[in-house]
Design a protein around this nucleic acid. Structure first.
Lengths: 212, 212
DNA sequence: GGCCGAATCCCTCTTTCGGGGGATTATCAT
DNA sequence: ATGATAATCCCCCGAAAGAGGGATTCGGCC
């Protein structure tokens, strides 16, 4: 590391205040500097290309293109990208997807500055940064079984209040098959009915409410 | 106003980064200064008493005691408190409750600094600050009918996946009465079934998911 | 005193859910 | 090839949900 050329940081968050907070925090450090900001996933991808930052700090709940999808897109073109997810606790599924999509670290928004800065430095030097409490959650997640693609799709439709018959029509399968899937979903999520299935799926980040 | 004694600001948010951003932004202004920070509703109430700030900036989604309840508690003891809600868009119900509980202003977290500072100044000088887009939402809310206390309570239980019979047992009324309430809820929210009712209620801020 | 809204309870009837099975393909990794 | 998994479809059956009525009580408000 050269102390005379601070690491280039890209900050991605839709809240101005959060970006301002990060900028203030980071620019105080001698070895890093915020060189770019993006407010949504689309911007993030574009600005990453232009800037080629050393570390990208990314919120997951961002408009236009989700944080996870943005990470995936960036990682595809730049497999050496160092992306640090900075998020409130968004549910196991999001964390897991983010790491799978190519993120190298995860920090909670609740974290104080002296927890965030070391995370950035870790990524700068090529290391990963996953706090133990996050890893514990990922393990816990594996206890509960994972939903398949089809099942996740159906949970999304459940959340919209669709009946089995409607779902069948929408995705072109039989109502009987939908019932099978729903049965499996209830069993996997260990819930009593479709309504609880939806709230559990929302908490785990398996599905999201459409933006308000 | 005396330019030599800056207004005392209390910042309430559970995210360190947000507090840091606000502190940086505010302390740049000559006429205001962050004199206190709180991470949850309980702290907010306590620190408000000690500090008696000129303006309090409050997030709604905070632990222990919700922002709305904290505002209510503070307002009860200090009817002259100036509280500015700073929140991502949390649904009509939360905004409405916050204002009803005693907040004097509302600013979105997306807002940039030159939108937040004027809001603080407005409250400092005793004015209210409700952006037009927020007021529009409050009007829109009134188009759709309002749920009664009982109905909101039942929506909360629906979100937990309780069946009508369980709900009846839990709150000590007949299953028939629960069905009546559910029927009215579906009609008021203009949805097809209880599952959709829950997701709509979540989006509107009528109920919340238990914290992750 | 009369009115209205909230909350309660009741009945009928049809549809939908969810639990309990079982079965068949296709794919993919071993 | 063999096994595992995902995805599909099928049947039965009892319980729950929702649509459509109607009715009562209790307060507060005008």
């Amino acid at each position: 590391m050269k102390p005379n050329t601070p690491a280039k940081i890209l900050v991605v968050d839709d809240h101005y205040i959060v970006r301002a907070g990060l900028r203030g925090l980071i620019d105080q450090q001698p070895d890093m500097k915020v060189e770019g900001e993006a407010q949504n996933g689309e911007e993030a991808i574009r600005i990453f290309k232009e800037l080629n930052p050393d570390v990208t700090i990314m919120d997951l709940r961002i408009p236009v293109i989700s944080g996870v999808d943005a990470i995936r897109a960036i990682y595809r073109d730049h497999p050496d990208a160092r992306i640090l997810v900075l998020s409130s606790f968004d549910g196991d599924e999001d964390i897991h997807s983010a790491l799978e999509a190519g993120a190298s670290g995860y920090v909670l928004k609740h974290s104080s500055g002296d927890q965030i800065i070391p995370a950035i430095r870790a990524l700068m030097s090529g290391h990963r940064w996953i706090p133990p409490e996050i890893e514990k959650h990922l393990d816990a997640r594996n206890q509960g079984e994972t939903l398949t693609t089809r099942e996740r799709e159906i949970v999304g439709l459940l959340a919209q209040g669709e009946a089995n018959k409607q779902i069948a029509g929408l995705i072109g399968i039989t109502e009987e098959t939908v019932k099978s899937h729903v049965k499996n979903i209830l069993a996997k999520l260990k819930v009593r009915d479709r309504t609880e299935a939806v709230t559990v799926a929302l908490r785990r980040g398996i599905v999201h409410l459409p933006e308000v």
